[in-house]
């Protein structure tokens, strides 16, 4: 695994509304090495700043040629500074980091995203055959279903849901998944579920898969200082005791490895 720490120019910064942005960075070596599910640490603000002190972790939305894309939401100090960057500005970027999704083109794939959980799933969707891939995306409201359209060419079926019913099915994406799992199992196929989103959603997906005996991989978040396995700050409870480190064991983990009861 080759990790690079470079200063790279911002190519574009697209405001998608609802505080969600799409950032493109020209970083050929990172873009070429990147795998779906991996992430990068981005430095917010000027190189001299010590506040914010830490870099921020972001999943790779996708890589295309020499360019690497991030889909992110402005939530605090660091993301506000990143959102203020303009084309031509230089950003310090470390990556690609962590273990990505296992990619299985032979099985039927179900990708489940909640909120900005869509970010890493897009790269995965692009790497899978269209045939046999189902995508289910949910958010609070239609405006937060960022880049749902972009998924359309990459899946046989795309299902959407919103908590307020403003787009797609009214309800939770996990409800969509529950129905779909039953239908898939009836056809005799054992699908592979890949999920990313807020903790309660991912936990519900993991539980659904567990009770149906379906393999499930999840992309998880944790507070990170280094992103490179040095600080041991990014621990989450491992089933059977001890801890997993999201930045090196993950961020994509077999759901069966995670202790969902003690976590958060």
């Amino acid at each position: 695994m080759k990790r690079l720490d470079i200063s790279a120019p911002v190519l574009s910064q697209q405001d998608l509304g609802h505080g969600i942005l799409l950032l493109a960075i020209l970083a050929p070596e990172i873009a070429k090495a990147a795998l779906p599910g991996q992430f990068c640490m981005l430095h917010a603000g000027s190189p001299e700043t010590t506040d914010p002190l830490l870099r921020r972790p972001f999943s790779i939305h996708y890589a295309d040629g020499d360019t690497i894309f991030f889909l992110y939401r402005v939530v605090g100090k660091g993301t506000r500074l990143i959102a203020a960057m303009r084309p031509g500005d230089v950003i310090r970027i470390l990556g690609p980091l962590g273990c990505g999704f296992s990619i299985s083109a032979e099985t039927k794939n179900i990708l489940v995203g909640g909120g900005l959980g869509t970010a890493p799933l897009f790269f995965l969707a692009r790497s899978l055959p269209r045939e046999g891939t189902t995508i289910m995306l949910g958010a609070k409201t239609s405006g937060e279903l960022a880049r749902a359209d972009a998924f359309l060419p990459h899946a046989e079926k795309v299902f959407l849901s919103t908590d307020d019913g403003s787009l797609g099915q009214h309800g939770l994406v996990t409800e969509l998944l529950a129905g779909h799992i039953q239908r898939t199992l009836c056809t005799g196929f054992l699908p592979l579920v890949s999920a990313c989103g807020p903790w309660p959603m991912v936990r519900a997906v993991a539980h659904l898969c567990h009770i149906n005996g379906i393999p499930c991989q999840v992309s998880l978040e944790a507070r990170m200082a280094c992103g490179t396995g040095l600080c041991l700050g990014c621990a989450i409870p491992r089933s059977g005791g001890g801890y997993l480190h999201v930045c090196t064991d993950g961020p994509v983990l077999d759901a069966a490895l995670v202790d969902w009861e003690t976590s958060q």
Binding site: T50, D51, P52, L53, L54, A222, R223, M224, A225, C231, L232, G233, C234, A235, I236, P237, G241, G242, Y243, T262, S263, Q264
Partner: peptide, 23 residues
């Protein structure tokens, strides 16, 4: 040593608070 339960780190102004617990 397994270390402490998460959250183990939090950023503060120009600083980092950690309670890794010597994992």
């Amino acid at each position: 040593r397994p270390g402490n339960p998460p959250p183990r780190i939090v950023e503060t102004p120009s600083g980092l608070l950690n309670a890794i617990g010597l994992e």
